[in-house]
């Protein structure tokens, strides 16, 4: 997770480009959320920073969020994607619950991805439950960024 600034410096080669980046019509909005009770948000902060440096608008809501709080924030902020980070081991309950709540509210155009200490054997079950992708420790942030860029649903 080291190459977060690469794109940033490219985009700011001249003042004019800076301006264009700022006023670009369609910004991708991402909610970075930490469900569950663990108090480790370094991973979430690294992800938030990396996506910001890639030009995303990142909404960060802090620690210890319930699935209900996360979904409520995602709806009010009209995000395109939700990135979940969980190190507590409760991901098998929390992640699917978030997808379920989104569906209950009729939200079908938000992709949900996740990272953290997720054992390999849980990954396929989580994907079946509607988590689009799981990024395990050691994944470069640029992989996650490319994934979100490729998979966000088009909107006006």
């Amino acid at each position: 997770m080291t190459e977060s600034r690469g794109e940033a410096t490219q985009a700011s080669a001249t003042g004019r480009e800076v301006n264009d980046t700022m006023s670009e019509a369609r910004k991708i909005r991402l909610l970075v959320a930490k469900p569950g009770l663990d108090g480790h948000d370094r991973g979430a902060k690294v992800i938030a920073r990396a996506f910001r440096d890639a030009g995303f608008e990142v909404i960060y809501t802090g620690l210890r969020q319930t699935p209900e709080m996360i979904v409520s924030a995602a709806v009010q902020e009209d995000v395109d994607a939700i990135g979940l980070s969980c190190l507590s081991g409760a991901h098998m309950y929390l992640f699917p619950r978030i997808v379920e709540l989104l569906r209950e509210r009729g939200v079908d155009d938000v992709i949900v991805f996740a990272g953290g200490t997720i054992p390999d054997e849980d990954i396929s079950a989580l994907k079946k439950a509607g988590i689009a992708e799981i990024f395990t420790p050691g994944t470069s942030t640029s992989v996650a960024i490319d994934f979100v860029r490729t998979h966000v649903r088009p909107r006006p």
Binding site: R49, G55, Y60, T61, G62, A73
Partner: peptide, 22 residues
């Protein structure tokens, strides 16, 4: 604020407003 270099932003004011999220 939006970063003038990347066009991205971290919007973190909600951290302090969690009690109203539901």
């Amino acid at each position: 604020p939006t970063s003038p270099f990347t066009g991205g932003a971290i919007l973190a004011d909600r951290i302090r407003m969690q009690q109203h999220s539901l």
